[in-house]
Amino acid sequence: MNGIPMEHGLILASILFSLGLAGLMLRRSMLFVLMSLEVMLNSAALAFVVGATAWSQPDGQAMFLLVITLAAAEASVGLALMIQLYQRYRSLDLDAASRMRG
């Protein structure tokens, strides 16, 4: 048992982050965009926990709590917006809500 290199944890976080980012850029449906955001937040939280355990400091986990709070807030507001979007356009297509174009 020789442990897990910290780098590997961070690489995992990077992969998850990039996947979330790709989803954010690719999908038109707001539901998927929100889920991609959750994935990205989660990967950031993972990076914090990796740091916390690698250096044996609880601060990283405290930050993890803050990230989770942020994710909850973001999800609730995002879903409320999504319901509004759906009520207006009968669809979750984000490109439909492009009235603020220049």
Partner: peptide
């Protein structure tokens, strides 16, 4: 030019 880039699409 900038108006064109402001296409209203979040993506």
């Amino acid at each position: 030019g900038l108006v064109r880039s402001q296409n209203g699409r979040t993506r």
